[in-house]
Design a protein around this nucleic acid. Structure first.
Lengths: 206, 206
DNA sequence: CTTGACGGCTAATCCGAATTAGCCTATAAT
DNA sequence: ATTATAGGCTAATTCGGATTAGCCGTCAAG
């Protein structure tokens, strides 16, 4: 990774831990292994570093999203998968999703940074909501909708069902973001959540 | 309200909008109607203002909590209320809770401030989680537990059920915090949520 | 081989925001 | 009546952190 990229990387780490205003450019430089003024050979200001992070992340998310949309069509083909979706599979799916979001270096640092900075900047707030509320709800709604079509889960309100699935997962995620030592507890709660979700919406009930 | 208190009040407003680091003492002073140096007749530093806010809020929450605990016992007496708890009542209860949290001046500003500042300070993170995760879950768990005892709702896992009730509400709250214009949409989703929650856990199903 | 861009460094500079100094008025207590 | 205190003001002061200036070595292209 070249210096220019490493600056973004270290800066993202620091911003996510302490917030933009509490990070000194000298600190970023030190982590990269250079002196503060040298940063300016790569970015014209501290703010430019922040903006570059946001832009790069947005690109990366957009790429991911369009990849998902491409699969969106053959998701219908893949829907067969969900015909056999039992509780164990559902838990596995949810846990993996959760752990990915929690531990994936980029997404987790970016999420924390946005959490801190969103209130300073309306654009960031919009980005935050899109990434962590609207898009996930929409995507998972599609997915769960398929499973409902398969008759594995039953509801007449897929959107609310999706909220029921996603909101607890996201909340547990924020718990771990704030206090990583609570991860085991959160994982336990996550699994209980999915188990109960499955029971509540499962074919057998209604 | 005397000047000393007004400083806390205006500072809280500003901190909740822009975050501690982005607020200048002169700004606080201006809102109060005095000049920046005069602030120092009341608090010895900017940080001291912040700390005073946190302390006062913590006290206020503690008071509220102990009041709830006192009622905790006669909650069992009041449990009769929940025998007749139907969907309409449940929605009303949830909506009121939601609107209170959303609009109550102090709690909403404080919540936003904590959201921003929690990562800079472990103590704040703990405060945040206690106030917006552990305590609400615990309290609502008690409440829902009573309703389960009455046989109005049915589950063998009250804690997860509480998460199912609370997490969506909290998530919708954060949506409105970030973008007040989405309040109507959020209220609609809130009501759908409670309706569906009631259907899922209601006596009639199992 | 020499030149220019790249990326690093040290030593200023700049600047803004927190804080302090020191003064003034009003009011309340002795 | 005097005086102390509270609480306000203007004018410094301080200070730390972002940024700029200007220098230097390296290395690839001509």
């Amino acid at each position: 990774m070249d210096t220019k990229q490493r600056i973004l990387d270290e800066a993202l780490t620091l911003f996510s831990q302490k917030g933009y205003a509490n990070v000194y450019v000298g600190e970023i430089a030190q982590k990269v292994g250079i002196k503060a003024p040298s940063l300016y050979k790569h970015y014209k200001s501290k703010r430019a570093i922040f903006d570059a992070i946001v832009e790069q992340m947005s690109e990366s998310f957009a790429k991911q999203a369009s990849a998902l949309n491409i699969n969106g069509t053959d998701a219908e083909v893949d829907a067969g998968i969900y015909k056999t979706m039992d509780e164990k599979h559902l838990i596995e799916l949810g846990t993996n999703l959760f752990l990915y979001y929690l531990h994936d270096d980029y997404t987790s640092r970016f999420r924390k940074m946005l959490t801190i900075e969103q209130f300073a900047d309306k654009d960031l707030a919009d980005t935050y909501m899109s990434l962590y509320f609207d898009k996930p709800i929409e995507y998972q709604s599609q997915l769960l909708g398929l499973i409902v079509k398969q008759g594995v889960l039953v509801t007449d309100d897929v959107k609310t069902m999706t909220l029921h699935f996603y909101a607890p997962i996201y909340q547990l995620l924020t718990v771990c973001d704030r206090d990583p030592s609570r991860e085991p507890e959160a994982l336990k709660m996550l699994q209980d959540h999915i188990r109960q979700f499955n029971k509540l919406y499962g074919r057998t009930i209604s």
